[in-house]
Simulated assay, not measured.
Amino acid sequence: MVRLSTALILSLWLPLLPLAWAARQGSEVPPVRSVPAVDLKRYAGTWYELARLPNRFQSDCARDVTARYEPLADGGVRVTNRCRTLEGEVKTAEGLAVPTDRSNARLKVSFLPGWLKRLPGARGDYWVVLLDPQYRWAVVSEPRRENLWVLARSPALPPQELARIVDTLAGRGYPTDRLLLTPHDAADLSHAAGY
């Protein structure tokens, strides 16, 4: 049996360390960044969820997921999320989003009842990370990449456009292989109208 000395082992492995370090550095994902700015007046209105990462607070949402944003006089944004469950019932959640800086691209949102919505620790991150210049679609996430929503002004985007968005997200380190596509029944979107 041949025994290799520590010096011999190190002489074999030391030249490979820079390569291993470089490979590790290349695999690290950059931090999540929001878009430079969001015009809340243009962002206001109804958005249709096209895809999302699985999350506990939407576990019973099966289809027809929408979000409506309404800017408030105090600078906050009223949020109304709606979806249809597997049983066909409409589920609604009312929330409040508050911008964290002048860009309006990073907000804190809470769906707790009443005055509890304004407690600092009771709010989650809501960052607009991609935004179409015409505000036809948007992507929302947060710093840990645990939550992700692809939203659009209509219940569908052309498949190649949605594929480009997903490719961009994959390139930014999002687990796009886990995305759930959100079906919309055009005849069943009455819950999205008039709110």
Rank of each mutant, 00 (worst) to 15 (best):
D39K: 13
L151F: 10
Q25M: 08
R56L: 14
S141R: 04
S5T: 09
G173Y: 04
E94K: 15
E87F: 15
P113M: 05
L179A: 03
G194R: 11
M1R: 14
D185I: 02
G95V: 00
S154Q: 14
D74N: 15
Q25V: 08
R52N: 04
I165M: 10
V32A: 04
L157S: 06
Y48G: 05
L180C: 11
S59R: 15
S110Y: 04
L72F: 07
L72D: 15
L17H: 00
D101C: 01
L50G: 07
R63L: 01
D74Q: 15
S5C: 01
R24W: 15
T66N: 03
S103V: 09
L112S: 12
Y126N: 02
D39G: 12
Q160D: 13
Y43I: 12
I9H: 00
W13N: 06
W21M: 13
V166Q: 07
K108L: 14
S27P: 02
P158H: 05
L180F: 10
L148A: 05
A156S: 08
T182D: 01
A163M: 10
L157F: 10
L8V: 09
T176R: 10
V166M: 14
L131Y: 02
R84L: 14
R172C: 07
G76K: 13
M1L: 12
K117T: 01
A138N: 09
V129W: 02
W21S: 08
P54D: 03
V29F: 15
C83H: 03
L14Y: 02
R3K: 11
V29E: 13
V129R: 02
T6N: 05
V79C: 04
D64I: 11
T176W: 08
K108H: 14
T168M: 12
V35K: 15
L4G: 02
R144M: 11
R164K: 12
A23C: 10
N104S: 14
N81M: 06
R84T: 03
A170G: 12
R102H: 12
L10C: 03
R68W: 02
L17Q: 04
V90M: 06
L189F: 11
R172V: 00
H184V: 06
N55M: 14
A105D: 02
Q25P: 09
L130A: 13
A51Q: 01
A138I: 03
V150M: 10
S141D: 10
A152P: 04
W21N: 09
P158G: 05
L148D: 03
V77G: 07
L131N: 00
P155S: 04
E142L: 05
V139G: 04
K91M: 09
T176E: 08
D167V: 09
A187K: 11
R24L: 15
N147A: 12
R56F: 15
P120F: 04
D132E: 14
A105H: 06
L119A: 13
V2I: 06
L4P: 00
T168H: 08
L180S: 05
A187C: 05
W149T: 00
A7C: 06
E49D: 06
P175K: 14
L53D: 06
K41L: 12
S110D: 03
T182G: 01
D132G: 08
A122R: 07
A20Y: 08
Y174R: 05
P120I: 04
P159S: 11
L19H: 01
S190G: 14
Y195F: 11
V166H: 10
L189S: 13
A7R: 09
